[in-house]
Amino acid sequence: MSARVRTVQTAAAGVRSFDIVPEGGARTYAPGSHINVSVLISDEPDVRSYSLVGRLPVNGAYRIAVKRLPDSRGGSAYMSTLQPGAHLMITEPASHFELQFGHPEYLLLAGGIGITPLVGMAEALNRGSAPFRLAYAGRSRSEMPFVEQLAAMLGERLDLFVSDEGRRVDLLTEIGQLHPDGELYVCGPVRMRNAAFRAWADQGREAVRMRFETFASGGRRPSRAFVVRVDELGVEVAVPENRSMLEALRDAGVEVMWDCLRGECGLCAVPVLAADGDIDHRDVFLSVEQQAQGAVICTCVSRVVGGGITIGAGLRSDLAPRRP
């Protein structure tokens, strides 16, 4: 549906928030919801998902916050060009990261720009009776959006971990304090998510009680350009730092399958035949063991650092039935 940017504000260093008014006004949504926004990447239309900030629309507008990332695939660069009055196409809010009520306690864990879906969750939990805490980690206070607003609302329920100020989040301690049937909601870089996975599993907690959002997360390592070879086709495809391996393969005319583009569904996974660099697995489809083995890669999100990779594209020429 058609929408218009009403206001653009600086929410933190490198982070802009946008109030976007859809035609007919914003409707209510579940905490943790996102909208998809049509963007232009190198003049090509594409889609990016952004979490909605806050429990309710702001005077009929959806609020999102976007961090300008140096190794962005182009979405944040496009968003940074938008000025008040700009028109764009968005979808109705949807949720892959729904806050579920009725549990005895909650821990919200945010890393940097990953705070965006958790603001509305904190507001919703703040209206209820179940105990909860928000642990919010970042490099420096100036780069962390919504700190003042959250501090005013949450008081001691907000715990800031600012690495510049010498405070790092200790996940074993944070999770250890949580009620055995409590739930953890994580949104942040993949390093934080993986650490939370490990701490959660170490304490023997039920896997489904740790909830996470995937699209706000980058990799363990910065994105760099690399090369992907498809031997069956005899092609070598360059993957620029701001394109995914999947996109680069599609651009080169290699037939690939995909769906979620968030590293969740596993449809884009291909076998790794050889790799002369370190694979930065950014998906959540492969188990930790499978990622360590490195025999399969999810091309929509994962990358290679410092080198190239040879994959199988599943191509065969002998599949059509033939008369013997």
Binding site: H96, Q100, A207, V208, R211, Q290
Partner: peptide
């Protein structure tokens, strides 16, 4: 009972988006 998917066939993980609504 919370509507969260806990098992998917032929894979080692469960897609975190997989859920059905659980009504109070």
């Amino acid at each position: 009972a919370a509507g969260r998917c806990t098992f998917m066939p032929s894979q080692g993980t469960v897609n975190p988006s997989a859920r059905v609504t659980s009504y109070p």
